[in-house]
Design a protein around this nucleic acid. Sequence first.
DNA 1: CTTCGTGCAAAAACTTTGCAAATTG
DNA 2: CAATTTGCAAAGTTTTTGCACGAAG
Lengths: 158, 158
Amino acid sequence: MPFLENIEYDNLIDEFKTVLKKNSLKFTKQRETILQTLYNFPGHFLPEEFYLLIKENNPKSNIGIATIYRTLNLLEDSDIVTTISFGKNGKKYELANKPHHDHIICKNCGLILEFEDKNIEKRQNDIALKNGFILTNHIMQLYGICPQCQKKLNKKEI
Amino acid sequence: MPFLENIEYDNLIDEFKTVLKKNSLKFTKQRETILQTLYNFPGHFLPEEFYLLIKENNPKSNIGIATIYRTLNLLEDSDIVTTISFGKNGKKYELANKPHHDHIICKNCGLILEFEDKNIEKRQNDIALKNGFILTNHIMQLYGICPQCQKKLNKKEI
DNA sequence: CTTCGTGCAAAAACTTTGCAAATTG
DNA sequence: CAATTTGCAAAGTTTTTGCACGAAG
């Protein structure tokens, strides 16, 4: 598929190729498709969901679920992808290289929203400074019940 | 087993009994053992690890892995236990009821400091509200380099 | 052309479920 | 006693692996 120029995406591919080269691994059609999907569909997906997403969007590619698992693991090990997991759901994968954001996660259905808050980030920096740390990054996840599930759960209790 | 008085533990048991009563469930030997283990071994454990831990510490109790899974799920649903999953590992369980704190972690030496910041907590609540979530808890970890390691690393670079 | 990757199917690992017997309230 | 729970084994799920063929460097 022809795409417009996209430096961000090209950088991502370059990053991946560098990792591959460093480990004498090969840049295959499947690995490219997976990275492309990761890039084109921002969000958090289970391996199975990637599998279906890729089948749907690349009908020709006869990709196997095993390849999805192998590639996601590779991408996770290389820090190109990060994972998050909560409640009943398994581990969900997302591109690591996105502008920084934190997560709000529904404990009931696993819905994940993203947010960013400069105020908190500044405060975190202050706390780190006060403790003499040089901060490099952070993880912040808020857990709760999303609006939809609040409704559902209320109904059940009647 | 006779234990010293332990209000904290008793409260935990009471909390559990309340949940059980509310749902017409029963307080069994196995459920007690699991809660006791959760209390006596602070840390994050996989279901399998609980199973082994309990077998080791309660040789008489012939507890089944299915009961571990069933009870952990129950405890998670009741918010007595929370789960988290780091990297390769699956979901790990820990007691939720510990006094809340967040962490600053040194990426170099692993030093962990704890902190608490009302300001950030309030802000987190606001963010959750804005998204319609009812917040139950959160995880916040700041990663960086601690003062000691900063010195060490500077020397190395000379 | 050598090495690595892939899909497939089988295996392993992990989690849930059905059931008869045991335990709890 | 009635209702729930348990351990066990079987059934589901999810993830990994072995292998022969195909693709990449």
